[in-house]
Design a protein around this nucleic acid. Structure first.
Lengths: 188, 188
DNA sequence: GTCTATACTAGGATAGAC
DNA sequence: GTCTATCCTAGTATAGAC
């Protein structure tokens, strides 16, 4: 079995670790336990250690954002329907608010510098796609962009709050109101 | 000089460490460097180590939330004016978006369990105070509560995004629109 | 209350056998 | 590609002098 296959099994596990524990909170021993691989095997796959793991997780996430969030928004059909499709994927990815955001986990602390550019790319792709749908639905470019940024802010904020309170209702409400927040004409 | 004075000097330093690095990202050596105290002195002040430090930081934050955010909201005067006063304090506390939120830093990872209840108290006090002002300004209880929760979500989310992108404009925009978000009749 | 010194554990990383 | 064994550093925590 080649390297390529291994990575597709490893990266989702690493993603789960980093989003739940943050960069500093994940030890190589944790990774070893979660993957079933010994430390030496891990260094075989990731010679530069934990930082490389995090970098590859972010690359993996960037692909995931494009496939799961951006692609549905760019599909054919009614803007509202495409937005609902994305919303479903978001709800799924964050497990209804039980799982945190990797942007959060990997940008906390001084170790985050190497990751900032990759994070920015994923954020920009997602926000741009949401804004584009809003423009199609009739909003001005300026308003569409602001609402798209607000949508992402609301998602991130509700994930922090849901985690902090151990209660997913903040996330659920944000998800439910997301189409209205992005495309609606009035406050909720 | 008594114990009481020492804590008022130590806790703000600990707060800065935890909000920037998260719980797992802070080592006793970091604390030693930041405070100028040797490790043994730190264990003299906090016999239960890092967890006690974090707990006391959260107690300190709870007081700060009540004094800096809740108190202005409960003062006499125009609701909009009181809200602007709180907004100023929030902007100041987060240093215009350059400093992260302690709720975020202390709830990431498995070590966060002991802190959840304290975090929840601060959150509830702040949200309740914002909702109360919104009710005074004429909103229904239900809408006021939702808007207050949304305001906190927006603050938390914009802090995550500002940190992730290394750019404070998300936070600044949320702060600028906060009164409208809470009390306004339409979308921004 | 703070220091130096020390013990011990956990974490990161590598060498070399299979 | 994975393992065991090992190394070294960093991290937590304590003892005892001042």
């Amino acid at each position: 079995m080649g390297d390529f296959m291994e990575r597709t099994e490893l990266l989702p596990i690493l993603l789960e670790l980093f989003r739940q524990q943050g960069y500093a909170g994940v030890s190589i021993a944790d990774v070893s336990k979660a993957t079933g691989l010994g430390k030496s095997s891990l260094y075989h796959h990731f010679p530069e250690g934990k930082e490389q793991m995090a970098r590859e997780v972010l690359q993996h996430v960037e692909v995931g954002v494009r496939e799961s969030f951006v692609a549905p928004l760019k599909a054919v059909g009614d803007p509202h329907e495409r937005l609902r499709e994305m919303t479903k994927m978001v709800e799924d990815f964050y497990d209804g608010g039980r799982k945190g955001c990797i942007l959060d986990g990997l940008t906390l602390g001084a170790a985050s510098e190497p990751f900032r550019q990759m994070v920015a790319r994923s954020v920009e792709a997602w926000v741009a796609a949401m804004a584009s749908v809003a423009v199609e639905a009739g909003l001005s470019k300026k308003v569409a962009r602001e609402r798209a940024e607000d949508a992402l802010i609301a998602i991130e904020g509700s994930l922090v709050l849901s985690r902090a309170l151990g209660d997913q209702k903040a996330f659920k409400r944000v998800i439910k109101n997301l189409p209205q927040r992005l495309l609606g004409e009035t406050n909720l």
